[in-house]
Design a protein around this nucleic acid. Structure first.
Length: 141
RNA sequence: CGAGUGGGCCAGACGGUCGCGCGCGUCCUUGUGGCGCGUGAGGAAAGUCCGGGCUCCCAAGGGCAAGAUGCCAGCUAACAGCUGGGCGGGGCGACCCGACGGAUAGUGCCACAGAAAAGAAAACUCCCCUGUCGAUGCUUGCAUCGCAGGAGAAAAGCUGAAACGGUGCGGUAAGAGCGCACCAGUGCGUCGGCAACGGCGUAGCUUGGUAAACCCCAUCUGGAGCAAACGCAAAUAGGAACGCGAUACGGCCGCCCUUCCGUGCGUUCGGGUUGCGCGCUGGAGAUGCGCGGUGACGUGCAUUCGAGAUAAAUGGCCGUCCAACGACAGAACCCGGCUUAUCGGCUCACUCGCCUC
RNA sequence: GUCCCUAUAGUCUAUCGGUUAGGACGCGGCCCUUUCAAGGCUGAGAGACGGGUUCGACUCCCGUUAGGGGCA
């Protein structure tokens, strides 16, 4: 998938008490396509998570940014117009915050599906919580 | 009351709570920070279809090509926009629609059908006349048909989208603007109007369509575009300024020409890309009042500052209200337009029909 | 963001404004063969959408829609 079709959102990094962080973007299209090919996919009706463990081989990334996790939000251009994409990215940022992310040691891509902005927020949150709980957090941590 | 026409305005509101971009202030544990305050998308922000501003291409001029516009006058920074007027078409009407210059400047095209598709030129059918011609009929010198010859022909000729003005009367052997009346068009004259154009008079003057075919005429247009352009920082090649200068080549982003500039030598100074900054929002700005103008618009005064992100900021939840859970949809250098998408609501002016007074 | 280009059968592709839009591959049916392939005969199938100019539009003009490309 070409880089121009993706929308990756920068987020803030963790600081003392609050959630907020700073995120470097997984800006390079190389890293994104690596995640797309090698990451684990967790599907919900509204969006798809693509989870990849941060490799030790990625020395530069760790040296520069430390070991805290990274996130990316992607709303495909073919799925809707600008209003749809902005709404989808807001939704996904809110979901990430409510779920407690980003998760140390992992790169997570939030990939929006068509129905994301149309559903009510509570439904989406519930579905995502369920998926996340039953998957990598409970297994790996 | 019903049906309709044109213009303007709004684009859910209020409160609570969590959250986002930018600016300012303040605090400290100085940073990818906390707190507080302020501010924060549209009528189309869209399509990128036109027109400008702004920036660079060293600069200036001329010619050709290419493109755009196209009733007239005005408005404007400019326009393919807007306003007013004219003409044509539609509607009972309010009103709406129109790429609406030139076809005697020239060239091309007009399939099929048709005698003919553009100098109405020739040929054909038909019409008319003539006959030591032929046939038929009888009212016995005429009628009809055929044949031959001849004059005229702008009447008629199934066609076709379109046939060389139309209708009527006269005229004639038969006919024809051949003559006349009315209608349509054209030329000329005159009057009104800045003009487009319109009114009147006059001349038988009667020239097919197509220019969103080539073209002619008039007016306009250099090219590229904020990923333009400029500045700062670290590593590797071109470079920039000044002085001297013949040919050749290159530059002036369609082509050609002229002036001009560069490539050569010497001296001096420092640099393509990535990141950040700048451009970046105070402007043909907005609101109100007044004045000029039929109007678009112009102008004076007062008040006011209303986004500037850089993967890109406006939402989630709760409560109340609206008959309605609320359409199309998100700034990316900035403006003026056009076009397209759009749930509904409010309001002003006007038209037609019906009823009542 | 900005500047451009294209659209014809399932696919690839022709066309000067004038018959029923031509061709190749593919598809259906029949023949041939014991059967399949090859071959022969035959058939179906298209102008992105909406307006306009013209007697007449795939072609000319305007507007939408959908694809594709260039830029640092």
């Amino acid at each position: 998938m070409p880089c121009s079709l993706l929308v990756v959102q920068r987020v803030a990094s963790v600081s003392a008490s609050k959630w907020s962080i700073l995120l470097d973007t997984v800006k390079s299209s190389l890293e994104i396509s690596n995640l797309f090919t090698s990451g684990r996919r967790l599907k919900t009706p509204y969006l798809t998570f693509i989870v990849g463990k941060q490799e030790d081989g990625n020395e530069v990334g760790i040296r520069q940014h430390g070991r805290h996790g990274r996130v990316a939000f992607i709303a495909g251009k073919k799925l809707g117009n600008a209003v749809w994409r902005n709404a989808a990215k807001r939704r996904m940022r809110a979901i990430c915050r409510d779920l407690g992310g980003p998760w140390p040691g992992y790169d997570v891509i939030f990939l929006a599906k068509q129905s994301l902005p149309d559903a009510t927020y509570s439904k989406v949150l519930k579905a995502c919580e369920k998926t996340i709980q039953s998957s990598f957090l409970s297994e790996e941590v």
